[in-house]
């Protein structure tokens, strides 16, 4: 059974990617691309077709036009399928994660880049082969939406092992999760270019006073009563803030770029606004 929001997510992502997004992935490496980089002296062994004869005549020295290399990117998305992703006030975090997967997947195939998705918990839940086909992106979106999350718990040792040994080619690695625990990304960041996408709900960071609630933890499935009063919220928020500071310093230390997306926000706007700035 296809979730109701699946079509909506795909349509919205397609509209954003094929309607508004322009440009391709530039590389800082010089090579056989179309983007002009500079005019510099000819070096032995270079392609003679690149010699700029006018500039050579002016300077009395052979000059070549160099261009930026057009790079084929391997875009790999890792979805952290923690039980805590089964939450959200306006939209569930799982839906937002699916939308991010859709946006990244469609933009990758639009640029003729390879796209692959791996959904990880304490083991591999699902993975797609690297592909440039839209059908694979669609299946990835569907799997992200449909994978059951309750009771799932992520294992950073496994994630690290997977990213290092199962993703063979150095890739642009997007890791999507809520990051409520400190990740082990040091080794991964040395192999891949890592961008962490933090999907959260405002309620998780600062809940509001709701009185007595019977709460079931989606990770441990433990059930208990919680009194959401001002004192609780104050201490809970302080603890989360402290944890976020530790998380930020961890990302900074490893040189990992982060994007925060909340469930009440448009993932496209937030994602590409931040990506352009990176």
């Amino acid at each position: 059974m296809m979730p109701l929001c699946y079509n909506l997510i795909v349509q919205r992502a397609r509209k954003h990617i094929f309607g508004e997004m322009v440009g391709s992935n530039a590389s800082k490496k010089e090579g056989d691309g179309y983007d002009f980089a500079q005019i510099r002296p000819y070096m032995y062994g270079e392609n003679v077709k690149r010699i700029d004869w006018k500039q050579s005549a002016k300077n009395g020295e052979i000059q070549v036009r160099s261009f930026f290399e057009e790079k084929e990117i391997h875009l790999h998305v890792i979805g952290l399928m923690n039980g805590s992703m089964h939450f959200g006030i306006e939209h569930s975090k799982q839906e937002v994660m699916s939308e991010v997967v859709a946006l990244l997947g469609l933009s990758a195939i639009k640029n003729s880049d390879f796209f692959a998705l791996s959904l990880l918990g304490d083991k591999l839940l699902w993975q797609s082969p690297a592909s440039k086909k839209e059908a694979m992106v669609r299946e990835s979106i569907l799997k992200t939406l449909q994978t059951p999350l309750l009771g799932e718990k992520i294992n950073w040792d496994y994630i690290q092992e997977y990213a290092l040994y199962h993703i063979k080619k150095p890739s642009l690695l997007f890791i999507i999760g809520d990051f409520f625990e400190l990740p082990k990304l040091g080794a991964i960041a040395r192999k891949h270019e890592v961008i962490a996408i933090k999907v959260r709900d405002h309620f998780e960071e600062k809940p509001w006073s709701m009185g007595a609630l019977h709460v079931k933890d989606p990770i441990t499935l433990k059930e208990d009563k919680v009194i959401l009063d001002e004192a609780f919220i104050k201490r809970y928020s302080a603890k989360q803030k402290e944890q976020d500071i530790a998380l930020e310093s961890c990302f900074k230390k490893e040189g990992i770029k982060t994007i925060s997306i909340y469930t009440n926000e448009d993932p496209f706007v937030k994602l590409f606004a931040t990506l352009r700035m990176l």
């Binding site: 805590s84 919680v226 989360q240």
Partner: peptide
């Protein structure tokens, strides 16, 4: 019961 992470 409501599924809410982290509170417990």
């Amino acid at each position: 019961s409501l599924y809410i992470p982290h509170l417990l």
